[in-house]
């Protein structure tokens, strides 16, 4: 399953990353190489094998849903590129 220019455009869109014409060319060769490395997996028969999502096969622990933190607004808002009062500012989304 060779990766091509069209695929790169599509995944770059999904990943929300601009790719210039120049970058795209360079990228294509490298991604083809990486995907051919990954394709070695296809030689292996994996019928009836359970996928492994966690190295120790443990399940997610549950905890009580408690409020444990105070209002962190004053610590967090100053980190944003643009804010107004207590809001994150983004370009207008809704007309």
């Amino acid at each position: 399953m060779a990766i091509g220019k069209k695929d790169i455009e599509k995944i770059a869109y999904l990943a929300r990353i601009n790719i210039s014409q120049e970058e795209s060319k360079k990228l294509e060769n490298k991604l083809i190489g990486i995907m051919s490395l990954i394709d070695k997996m296809q030689e292996v028969n994996t019928d009836n094998i359970e996928p492994m999502a966690h190295a120790l096969d443990v399940s997610q622990p549950l905890r009580e849903d408690e409020v444990i933190e105070s209002d962190l607004r004053k610590n967090i808002l100053p980190l944003a590129p643009e804010t107004e009062e207590c809001l994150f500012i983004v370009p207008q989304v809704i007309e």
Partner: peptide
């Protein structure tokens, strides 16, 4: 980093 994000996006798409 961009390369890996793109590979990751591809294999999950």
């Amino acid at each position: 980093v961009k390369r890996r994000i793109l590979i990751g996006t591809y294999v999950l798409s």
